[in-house]
């Protein structure tokens, strides 16, 4: 589906660095054209809320000779690209989370790339590449066998 730049600019109206963010998302879309974008309310740990852009989709992770489509959701902060995205796994109803070094029980993703985030060297495409690499070492989701 065609990437709608104008729609994205409208969704990102309140973002501090809208043009930078749109340019970067155009680049993400070139590598990962199946992500869906929407503006939703994110609730922070301190219960504050903010309308933020998020994109959901799957990333291809090779494991034991098979490629799995791991569902993720990335929330882009309104100070992007000067703050890292907040990243979650989005397991389907028949998937379980394998808590590990990079994933907690709520499906939140932790990566060195996020900890060391710094503009301009850190970019979403680079983040996703590291996510794929780490998930290939330690798969974060498993499929529950059907009864």
């Amino acid at each position: 589906m065609e990437f709608d730049c104008e729609e994205l600019r409208r969704l990102l109206a309140k973002y501090k660095f809208r043009d930078l963010t749109v340019e970067e998302l155009k680049n993400v879309n070139m590598f990962y054209p199946h992500f869906r974008y929407s503006l939703d309310t994110y609730v922070f740990k301190d219960s504050s809320q903010r309308d933020l852009l998020n994109f959901t989709g799957t990333i291809p992770v090779m494991y034991q000779g098979n490629t799995y489509n791991i569902p993720i959701c990335l929330w882009i902060l309104d100070s992007h690209p000067f703050a890292p995205p907040i990243c979650f796994l989005k397991p389907t109803a028949n998937m379980g989370i394998s808590v590990g070094k990079h994933v907690d029980a709520q499906g939140r993703i932790y990566l060195p790339y996020l900890q060391n985030w710094s503009h301009p060297k850190s970019v979403i495409v680079g983040l996703i590449k590291e996510m794929i690499a780490k998930f290939q070492e330690e798969l974060p989701l498993y499929s529950r066998s059907s009864s």
């Binding site: 199946h34 799957t58 291809p60 489509n69 989005k90 798969l139």
Partner: peptide, 14 residues
């Protein structure tokens, strides 16, 4: 829907 890939994950091993 914009034709995204279907989520999949490997089976768990007991």
């Amino acid at each position: 829907l914009n034709g995204g890939t279907i989520p999949t994950a490997p089976p768990s091993y007991t």
